[in-house]
Structures are given as structure tokens and as C-alpha cells.
Computed example of a mutant assay.
Amino acid sequence: MFNLFSRRRRLPADRRPALEPAERVLDWARVADGEEVVVVTDRGLWLPGETARLGWHEVHKAIWSGRDLAVTPAELVEERPGYRVVADGPVRTYLLVDPGDVPHQVRARVTRSVAYTAHHRVPGGGGVRIAARQVRGVDGLTWTVRYDPGTPAGDPRVVATTDDLVTAARTGTDPLL
């Protein structure tokens, strides 16, 4: 369905997710294997089979193959003072029929949510990616870390180094490593 004046496709009412009062639909696309849709809003991504929106700050990675949209959410592993430890959640892949502007909107909004990102080596082997993201409705930045596979994340030296790296990033100073 198209709106004659704006030329934007209008999301069918029966496919509209439970939006917050001021949340706006930016674009949407049908998923090939049914009547489900992927909906892009100014606040996040509504995926088929989910009852809640995935906020832009919760999307770790999104890849567009030209026909499939693969979304990797960040899942909370641990809360530490001043930051959260996250890991990749299961990749969710959707074959989009007439994707419209959905891939572009997803990429732009995920990228726009990232205010800072840096990767560092840590003691004992492995590394950590530190990121600061803008979260709608939250003052300041939300800090997260994601350890590379095989990194001993619970090692006290790794935790101490990570704490120092996040503190340095938050204060705008050079990292210690």
C-alpha cells in the first residue's frame, strides 16, 4: 500500500507492532516465508515472532546480503560498575520481499547509535571491544564491552584491565595498553 502524497508504503494495520505513543514507523518489509514483517522505527527494529522491539543500541551487527537481512543482537552477560558485558546472541536471518529502505535504515540507525568503539588486547590472550552507544531516553552514553571468543573474561587481570580501559575511554584519556 502506498500513500499517494508521501510515496511511502503504508504498513498494514494488522501488521503494526505495539508501538510506544511517539514511536514512528520509518519503513517495513515482508518476510518471504509468510505474512510476517520486519518493521523499522525511530526507536528500533521489530522482528517477526518477537513481542518487543530490539533497540538500536541492542543490535550488535546487521548484515544485508542483497536479499537476506541477518541481525545479531547483543545479549547481556554481566553488569559491572559503569558498563555491561555483552555477547552475540543468536543470528536471526530474514529473506525480505521488496526490502525498500529497510536495509539502509537499519545500517544508518545502528551506526548512528555508536558514539565510540575501540578494540584492545588483554592479558592472558584475546581482546575486548569497548563501545559507547546512545540510547534513546537515556542521558549520556551507555558503555558495553564484548570479549573476543576464547578471551578469559573472568580472569581478575582481564577484568581489571577492562575496568581501566573503560575508565580511560569514558574520561577521554589514552588507554593504558
Rank of each mutant, 00 (worst) to 15 (best):
G150S: 13
N3T: 13
G124H: 03
V38C: 03
L4M: 11
D88L: 08
G89V: 00
R136A: 03
S65M: 02
D14G: 03
P149T: 03
D14S: 14
R10I: 03
R157G: 14
Y147W: 06
A131T: 01
W143E: 05
L19T: 14
L47M: 14
D155H: 09
T142D: 12
A132L: 08
L26N: 07
E58K: 06
D148V: 02
V31E: 09
G127Y: 04
R109M: 09
R136D: 04
I63T: 10
V77C: 00
V40Q: 05
G55P: 09
P73M: 08
G89S: 11
D164R: 11
S113T: 15
T171P: 00
V114L: 12
R112T: 15
G124W: 00
F2V: 14
L45D: 11
N3Y: 02
F5D: 03
A160E: 09
P17F: 06
P73N: 04
Q134K: 08
V77D: 08
V77N: 06
E58I: 05
D68H: 13
A22Q: 12
R121P: 01
H119T: 15
G127K: 02
R121A: 07
P81T: 07
P103E: 05
T93H: 04
R30G: 13
H119I: 08
G82V: 07
G127V: 01
E35F: 07
R129I: 15
F2A: 01
T117G: 15
E20K: 10
P103Y: 14
A108K: 11
N3I: 05
R24F: 01
T144N: 01
R43H: 08
D139Q: 10
T144S: 08
G44K: 14
V86S: 00
H104R: 10
R92G: 04
R84K: 14
H120T: 01
F2S: 01
A13V: 15
V166E: 13
P21A: 07
T72S: 08
A22M: 10
T51F: 07
V122Y: 03
L69W: 00
G66F: 09
P17M: 11
L95H: 11
P12R: 13
A52L: 03
A132D: 09
R84T: 09
L177V: 10
T72R: 08
T41I: 15
A169E: 08
V106F: 06
P123M: 07
T171M: 08
D88F: 09
R80P: 00
T144E: 07
D155R: 03
W46L: 09
L47D: 14
A32Q: 11
A153F: 04
R10M: 12
G172A: 11
T72V: 12
A22R: 13
A169V: 08
G55V: 05
Y116Q: 04
V135H: 07
A131D: 01
A118L: 08
L141P: 05
P99N: 13
T151W: 02
E78S: 12
T144L: 07
D163C: 05
V114K: 09
R129T: 13
R136C: 05
V91S: 10
E36L: 05
G127A: 11
V138Q: 00
A62N: 04
R43K: 10
Y116R: 06
V106D: 05
R170D: 09
V158H: 02
W56H: 10
R7P: 00
L177D: 13
D101I: 00
L76G: 05
V37Y: 02
